[in-house]
């Protein structure tokens, strides 16, 4: 059928800015005053600049969590429950499609399902064109900095669910289910793919060094060593008990949850 009409997203910016898209449907933003073009929405640039004031915070996990909390709230992902996100993924046929590639049009369709529902319930809090455009902008920054206009389904799901509202263990269990085979087991390669997508989030904030760097192999090994079996796969319970010890590569997530809880 005809491609979905995403012209409503032109409302995501005001004059002198204009929203445009490349031939591969990647959004970019034109400033007619400065006669310049940018991959980042002006509000994304403002958001990223605002995070630098948090650089005074000494403890890296806490500093990263505060930054992520700001990003999360700016996109209203703090109002999106994990279940709502999963329902949207499923309703768009993304279940068990980790390696499938989504283009920007696909991402917008899924995010629109999420944000339209959210806006109905929180009309005063959620501006759909802006929130949606910032979410696409964030996901592209994290997983498609080269702006090819494509992201794998796994990255799309991980990038959204990690910043959603929900219990930590609920997120962990969902992440494991994403990778598990029919007998609910995950091997080192799969765990590596998952942790690689997770670490991209603090990496996007320039904070990856504090979490062991971009190489997640040591983290994969530590999980399997803790599982204590020489076999090549782990079960959910082993994955959870490893995460309960807040391994360096993932510690920013439980701290983010503590930051959110402390606001309640």
């Amino acid at each position: 059928g005809a491609p979905p009409n995403h012209s409503f997203l032109s409302a995501a910016v005001d004059h002198p800015w204009e929203r445009a898209t490349t031939p591969t449907k990647v959004p970019y933003y034109i400033n007619h005053q400065t006669e310049t073009t940018h991959w980042d929405h002006p509000k994304m640039t403002e958001l990223m600049n605002s995070l630098s004031e948090l650089n005074e915070v000494r403890f890296s996990a806490y500093r990263t969590a505060l930054k992520l909390r700001t990003v999360q709230k700016r996109m209203c992902l703090d109002l999106v429950t994990v279940n709502r996100a999963i329902d949207a993924f499923d309703s768009h046929g993304l279940r068990a499609q980790n390696d499938k590639v989504l283009d920007v049009t696909d991402m917008i369709s899924v995010l629109k399902t999420i944000y339209d529902q959210l806006a109905n319930e929180n009309p005063s809090l959620v501006t759909v064109p802006l929130c949606l455009d910032l979410a696409v902008n964030w996901l592209l920054n994290v997983y498609d900095s080269q702006r090819t206009g494509q992201i794998r389904v796994l990255s799309f799901k991980v990038g959204i669910v990690l910043l959603c509202k929900g219990h930590l263990e609920q997120k962990y269990r969902y992440l494991f289910r994403l990778m598990a085979d029919p007998s609910r087991l995950v091997d080192q390669r799969k765990l590596g793919l998952l942790l690689h997508d997770c670490i991209q989030i603090p990496r996007q904030l320039g904070e990856v060094a504090s979490f062991g760097g971009s190489n997640i192999e040591p983290s994969v090994r530590s999980c399997f060593e803790q599982a204590g079996n020489s076999t090549t796969t782990i079960e959910a319970v082993q994955f959870l008990s490893w995460l309960e010890r807040e391994p360096q590569s993932m510690v920013w997530l439980p701290v983010l949850h503590r930051v959110a809880a402390s606001e309640a």
Partner: peptide, 17 residues
């Protein structure tokens, strides 16, 4: 020290309306 978006590829150039 938020890392600037590593834009290895630049967005399309400005074209006056």
């Amino acid at each position: 020290r938020p890392k600037p978006t590593p834009t290895y590829r630049m967005p399309p150039p400005y074209v006056p309306p």
